[in-house]
Amino acid sequence: MSDLTLDNFLQLTVAGIVSGSAYALLGVAFGLILSVTGRFHFAFTFTYTISAYIAAEVGQQYGLPLWLALIVGALVGAVFGVLFERVVYRPLAEKSGAYALLVIFVASLGLAIIGRNLIALVWIDTASLQITGFTNAGYNIGPVTLTKLGIVQVIVAWILILALGAVLSYTGLGRIVRAVRVNPEMSLVVGVDPKTVYLAVFAIGSFFGGVAAVLNATQTAASPDMGFNPLFYAFVVAFLAGLGRHPVVVGLVGLFLGLIESWSALFMSTQWTSLVVFGILFIYVALRPVQLRGMLRRPTPATA
C-alpha cells in the first residue's frame, strides 16, 4: 500500500484531530439539546448556518477580528435556537401530547428548509460569504503541515467542551440540567422549571454549533447549504457516544471519528472517507440496537 507511510500517517492524524475536534463540538452541542429536551432539532442546520453568515456580515461591515465576529455570530445562533424552542417547539409540544416527537421533528425539518431558502434569498447576490478578520498560515514541522486556523479550531473546540463538562459536573446549573435530563417531572417537584432549562440548553447548544460554523466558514465560506452535513456528523457523534454522556466522552467520540475518517484515506480513495463514519454508525446500530430505545423521550406535561 503505497499510501501507508509515516509521513502520510502523521499528516492525516493532524487533519483528523482538526476535523475530529469540529465533530466533537458539533456532537456535544447537538447531543446536549437532544438528550435534555428530547427534541430532534433538525433546524440546528439553520442556527449553524445563520451564525456563519452573521459573523461574516458583521466581520465585513465593521472590520471585526475573527474572535469578536465569532461571538456575535454564535450569539445570534443561540437567540434563534431559543426562539425555535419558545415559539415553535414548545407550543407544538403542548398541543400534540404524546405525538409531539413526530410533530416537532416534522416542524424542525420544515424550519431547516425554510431557513436555508431564506438565507439564500437574503444573501442572493452572493453565492457565499467570506469570514474576514483572520489570516491563515501554514507551519511545517518536519513532514507535517499545521495551519493556524486548524490550531484555533482544536483549541476553541476543546475549551468549550471542557468548560461545558465542568459546568455540568461541578455547578448548580449543571446539576439542574442533569436533573431535568434524568427526570423532568421530579425536577419540577423540587422547584426546577424544565421549560427554562430547555431554553438554556437550546442557547448553549446553538451557541456551540455557531462557533463550529464560524470556524468552518473561516476555512471555506458561509453558504446556504453548509449546515446539513455537519448536522449528520453531530447526530452520528451524539448517537455513538450515547445520549446523556459527559461532554468529554462525546467529544472523544467525535475526535475518534475524525481520526478514523482521516486515516481511512490511507487505504481508500478520498471521496469515500466520509462513508467510513456512516459505516461505523451502521455497525454500531447493528450491534447495539438497544440504544435506539432510549434515544428520544416522550414529552410530559412538565416538559411540554
Binding site: 410533530v103 416534522v106 425539518l109 424550519l111 428548509i113 425554510i114 431558502n117 439564500a120
Partner: peptide, 17 residues
C-alpha cells in the same frame, strides 16, 4: 398541524428557490 408546518416549508422550497 405537523404537515402544515413541514408542508409549508416543503411547498415554499421551489417557490423560494
Amino acid at each position: 398541524k405537523a404537515a402544515g408546518v413541514g408542508g409549508a416549508a416543503l411547498a415554499a422550497l421551489p417557490l423560494l428557490s
